[in-house]
Amino acid sequence: MPTPQRLGFLFDLHGVLADSWQYHLRSWQTIATELAIPWTAELAAKLPGMSRDDSLGAILASVGRQGDFNASQRQVITDHENTLYRQYVAALTPANCLPGIPAFLQELTEAGYPLAVASASTNAASEIDHLGLRNYFPHIVDARQLKASKPAPDVYLAAAKLVDREPGDCVAFEDTVTGVQSALAAGCRVVGINQNPLPGATVMVASTGDLSLSVVRQELDLPDV
């Protein structure tokens, strides 16, 4: 009897593999200050998982200024945020991996599960290199080829294709509502990583330190082979 095909395991980057969203938030806080827009806890909670353009839109909308800039001007601002963020990326090291992540990835790799990074960040490959995780992730979605960002399913559809699996044969690891919506729209099962419930997640764990292959197999009723 043939061995069942391994599921594809697809990982969001920010908040799942590394706590790098803090650097995006610092960059966006700088942008907000330059635009004379108050930086609030509400914005800090809302932006994770959003694309750059959507993040800028949320910041502008927080003070009713969403019509202030045309498309080319918005591009200049989002490019500036990316420049600020890349300065933080250059300082990333393996120490920035979230707790338990290297051990979990090693466990999955040894068990033969194909892995991919499903991030809408154009800096994902560089971040993975700085984090020392490239050996686990030969497959990284090229965000520049995506037509739409999360919560659209594009990034997970692309990641499933990279590991040669149907989306329904993939498990996504996400930490935001937007990310869960994206993975569900693609047809993936979702492991939500958050202390608060993420609507629609197939299973939830409180933190990355709770991840292990045995836990995932048990919670998703996967064969122990």
Rank of each mutant, 00 (worst) to 15 (best):
K150Y: 01
L84G: 10
L92R: 11
D164L: 04
G168P: 09
A124K: 10
I193F: 05
Q73A: 13
A36T: 13
A125Y: 06
T93S: 13
P38Y: 04
G112C: 08
F104H: 14
T3H: 12
P94A: 06
L220Q: 06
E166M: 13
Q75M: 03
W28H: 12
C170L: 08
A183D: 10
F104Q: 09
D53P: 02
E42P: 00
W21I: 15
G49N: 08
G8D: 12
D129E: 14
A201F: 00
A103F: 07
R52Y: 06
D53I: 13
L56W: 05
E127Y: 03
S72V: 13
L162Y: 08
L131H: 09
D54W: 02
P2I: 06
L108Y: 12
P138M: 01
P199W: 00
T178L: 11
D175Q: 02
A71F: 15
A125F: 05
L213E: 02
G112W: 01
F9W: 15
L17A: 08
S55L: 08
H80Q: 13
A103M: 12
S182A: 15
D221P: 03
Y23P: 06
I31Y: 07
P199I: 00
T40D: 02
V16D: 06
A160M: 01
S51C: 08
C188N: 07
A18Y: 12
D19E: 15
T33Y: 11
L25D: 02
G112P: 05
Q87I: 06
Y23M: 10
E107A: 08
E219Q: 15
S27R: 05
G168R: 11
R189G: 01
A125K: 15
G49Q: 12
L162I: 00
Y85T: 11
A91P: 09
R52H: 03
T178K: 10
P151N: 00
A71P: 14
W28Y: 14
T30Q: 15
D210C: 05
L47P: 03
E110P: 01
H130R: 15
D169G: 14
L133P: 07
D142C: 04
T122G: 01
L131V: 04
V225E: 10
T178F: 05
E107G: 07
V215Y: 08
P114S: 03
G168D: 04
T208R: 10
V155F: 01
A201N: 03
A41N: 14
G179N: 10
H14Y: 14
A124W: 12
N194Y: 10
G187T: 03
Q66K: 03
V216P: 01
Q75S: 10
L198K: 02
A120Q: 09
L47V: 07
V155P: 00
Q22N: 09
A206W: 03
A118Y: 05
Q106P: 04
E110H: 15
R52V: 11
V117H: 09
G209I: 06
P197D: 10
Y88H: 13
A158Q: 09
Q73S: 12
L60N: 01
V180W: 04
Q22M: 02
V155H: 00
S121E: 12
T176M: 02
S51N: 05
S214W: 08
L35N: 02
E81W: 05
G64N: 07
Q66E: 11
G64Y: 09
Q5P: 08
Q22S: 11
A32C: 09
